[in-house]
Design a protein around this nucleic acid. Structure first.
Lengths: 120, 120
DNA sequence: CTCTCTGGACTACATGTGTAGTCGATACAC
DNA sequence: GTGTATCGACTACACATGTAGTCCAGAGAG
């Protein structure tokens, strides 16, 4: 399942609040994305076509629900990215993030906890 | 600087061995990529056009050298990816990698060392 | 010297992507 | 009941991308 950057923004809204209509998605994106409602509708249609969303009729409108799960999509995206750019090694990725101030103290704490669990 | 997946494969070869000619790059990719030499040349030309590579004449051929550094490119790619997919949080990324067996014991050890340094 | 092979330059072409516009039907305002 | 705003369906279009093909000039084979 290939989801483009713009489509991912739409998916994020629906992962957060499944069952929105096109207009609601447009509104939800309003802050960050300066898209017309047409653009949002196109993206929704493409996602339905790709099988990433399903629709449910609600009178004259459709409500949109994710068909693919947030977690599994992100896991696979992470995997692909690490494979493509870092030959599958996670450590260099994290090292690079650290270099560019990409890691907050919270992140570091969280990662430590995570590693602790993984070692078990 | 936007580098596509196919272009990244070419860059990787030249990061590894700067100063190859088109044919050499083609050969170097031979194992993994079933591209014709035309395809490789197109990718090289696009990368030059984008300013990611520079050429040096060597008789009738060109030798290709990276203009952008591997480390800085990867750091920025990592940053963008984490921002786009994980809202900038590194920890969930690592968690997902862990879920999909994306972390070897080596990775975990390396990450621990890294975190140790970061805490200083 | 002439023929052939190889290199780069230019061209091609389907598909994906970002970003929308048009159109016909319909639900709601009045 | 008639106009208008809105919905989904279909269409548009430029640029990126993956994957290559054509063409001409020069280098090397003989």
């Amino acid at each position: 399942m290939k989801i483009s950057a713009a489509e991912l923004d739409v998916m994020s809204v629906l992962w957060d609040k499944p069952g929105l209509a096109a207009t609601d998605v447009h509104d939800a994106l309003g802050d960050e994305k300066d898209w017309t409602s047409r653009t949002v509708k196109t993206l929704l249609a493409r996602l339905v076509e790709k099988g990433a969303l399903r629709t449910e009729e609600d009178g004259r409108r459709y409500l949109y629900y994710p068909l693919i799960e947030e977690g599994s999509y992100k896991a696979s995206a992470a995997r692909q990215f690490v494979d493509r750019v870092f030959s599958g090694r996670a450590a260099p990725l994290v090292a690079h993030l650290a270099d560019t101030n990409g890691l907050t103290a919270d992140d570091i704490a969280e990662l430590e906890k995570l590693l602790g669990e993984l070692k078990k």
